[in-house]
Amino acid sequence: MLTVITLAILGLLWGGVYLLMATGLNLIYGVMKVVNLAHGDFIVLGGLLAFSLFAEAGLNPLAAFPIAALILFGIGAGVQFGLLEPITAAGSEGELRSLLATFGLSYVVANASFLVWGSQFQSVPFLEGAVQAGPIAIPAGLLAASLAAFAATLLIHLWLTTTITGKSLHATAQSALGAASCGIDVRRVRLLAFALGSAMAGGAGALVITLIPFQTSTGGELTVHAFTLIALGGLGNYAGAWLAAELLGLTEVFAQFYLGSNAAAAVIYVVFIAVLVVRPQGLLGQAGRV
């Protein structure tokens, strides 16, 4: 019983980390209807940046978190400006083309990271002790990372729902033409959304690398993780995304404990495909439209 409770707590804490990973993708998808296939690679890049900041400058992972986020913000802005905005502006067949573009981007980011950091697994040691809560021991690192992720997600959520700039992101997601007729520069909103989403990926990476070692090829898996969450939780539905993140965290922790890490990796994909099959209309809700 104690094991189950411990696992449940671990799962819920992992949920916080997943939530941050997915919220960035959710934001980008919501505003631009583009799935950034390099999202996972951005997460890995953020983690590896944190690794270097730790290894070269001795920076605490929590201090590396904003720096990694900032660097990814810049990269995201560059990608949106140079790659995705021209495709969006061209209009027709935008979905296919932006998929191909981010598919290519994912390889560029992963292999550029490979050139810099090599192919070995990297990790950042952080708060390796455990917090004792009665008979239950919780890894301090996971607790800190999870709380940081929850805090960051909450801050961004507050920013999105209370400030006029945040609301203009929502507005653009719901009707770009409506936003433009309000005098909102939708191009700038898209730039902001993509940069912010990328920053969240970078920040999440800086936290996750303290928990699991990263390799440059981990990105694809993380993209699927994040996408599973937004498919499961529902677009723009923050409560749904949170619920999905917790479910995924629990599933993974339990699968790892009872089935082993290899099978746990497969379970995630099975959940993913099951989600797609049960909700084939997905976030788009295109079924039956004539």
Binding site: I164, K167, H170, A171, Q174, S175, G178, A179, S181, C182
Partner: peptide, 15 residues
């Protein structure tokens, strides 16, 4: 072209 999930007050302010 309204924002279906935003409130009336928010929508007006965005104008």
């Amino acid at each position: 072209q309204l924002f279906p999930m935003l409130s009336v007050a928010d929508t007006l302010e965005l104008g």
